[in-house]
Amino acid sequence: MSLLTLEGVTAFYGSSQALFDVNLEIGAGEVVALMGRNGMGKTTTVKTICRLLPAKGVIRFGDHDLLPLPSYRAARLGIGLVPEGRRCFGNLSVEKNLTAAARPGDWTAGTVTELFPRLGERRSQIAASLSGGEQQMLAIARALMTNPKLLILDEATEGLAPLVRQEIWKVIARLKQESGMAILIIDKSIRELSRIADRAVILQRGETVWNGPVNDLTSDLTERYLGV
């Protein structure tokens, strides 16, 4: 049984329709890459899953229908979001950012700082004064502190230095191998996504146009839908 199911999902920003027919499935422990060019509805899809944007259709998480739930209830069911643009709690220290988000489970301040040793070194530093890469690590660590069953990473490596990007990709690979958590990733790096993801879903103008094993992605498909 799949952990997350989206069927025929539509969503609007005011009167402007952003999603027309999004279909997506993620199984427990599976890593799925959500791909598409800019403005095709990837972040909007994430917002509908996290209940940050009203939607129609079917959105199920395990046995739960997510559509009637407020976003905090969806998060409590086990959806951890690392939002686009990092968005830490800027005036709280690293430690306080983690404590504020903590929910019972295997992920604790100790285990996440073991995953990101730099955060351990900057434990008492105000989040707003961290570098972009460290803020990204904090955003991932904060999402892990909620002990999610599904981790959603929306452009987690965007705007970061190559070395920091590599560090984050290594962590994502480690999470895949060791945690058994399902992961939905949005990223521009097709090369890295192809290495880590089990499956890919491609969106085109708010619709799912391709869904399959990442190894089946052909250059024809990536050229047609991703422009590379």
């Binding site: 905090y72 209830r73 709690f89 306080k96 404590t99 988000a101 999402a143 909620t146």
Partner: peptide, 24 residues
């Protein structure tokens, strides 16, 4: 306390607090 930190976080961003499972 975790409550105080969550309250402080909610003051900064309602959406971010909801995304980590708290009801602002």
């Amino acid at each position: 306390s975790p409550f105080g930190l969550a309250l402080n976080a909610a003051r900064q961003s309602t959406q971010r607090v909801e995304a980590v499972g708290m009801d602002p």
